[in-house]
Amino acid sequence: MQSLILSTAIRLLMPLFLLFSVFLLLRGHNEPGGGFVGGLVAAAAFALYSLAHGAEAGRRMLRVDPRLMVAFGLMTTLVSGMLPFFSGQPFLTSLWSTFPAPVIGHAGSPLLFDTGVYLVVAGMSLLIIFSLMED
C-alpha cells in the first residue's frame, strides 16, 4: 500500500534522521547516545523509506549491501581494539589523541569502536528488515 503522506514526509525526514543518527553517535561519548542507538536511528530512516517505496528502492537508496556494512563495522571495531597492541597494551585499551578536535573534544579509539558498532547495528537491522519485507 502506497501512502502519499509517508512517501512525501520521508523524503524530507530522511536527511534529518541520518544527521540525528550521526549526532547521537558523536554525542554518545560522554552523554546518552552512542553507536548502538545511532545505528538504530539510521536503520529506522531506511526502514521508513522502504515502507514508503518498497524494499527494492530501500536497497537502492542504501547503495551498499547491509551484510557488507556488518562486516566492515566488525572490522572497524576489531581494528580499534587491536590498535593498542602496537604500543604493547592489552586489547581494547582506550587510546586518546592529545589534540583537541572540534565538536567532540578529544578523538580516540573509543570513537572508532563506536563507529564500528554504528555500522554493525545499522547493517544488521537493515539485513533483517529487508529480508522480512522481501519474504
Binding site: R67, L68, A71, L74, L78, P90, F91
Partner: peptide
C-alpha cells in the same frame, strides 16, 4: 587474545566473502 581474535577475524572475512 589471539585464540579469540583469530576466529573473529576469520568470521568477519567469511562475511566479506559471502
Amino acid at each position: 587474545f589471539l585464540p579469540l581474535l583469530i576466529p573473529l577475524v576469520t568470521a568477519v572475512l567469511g562475511l566479506l566473502a559471502w
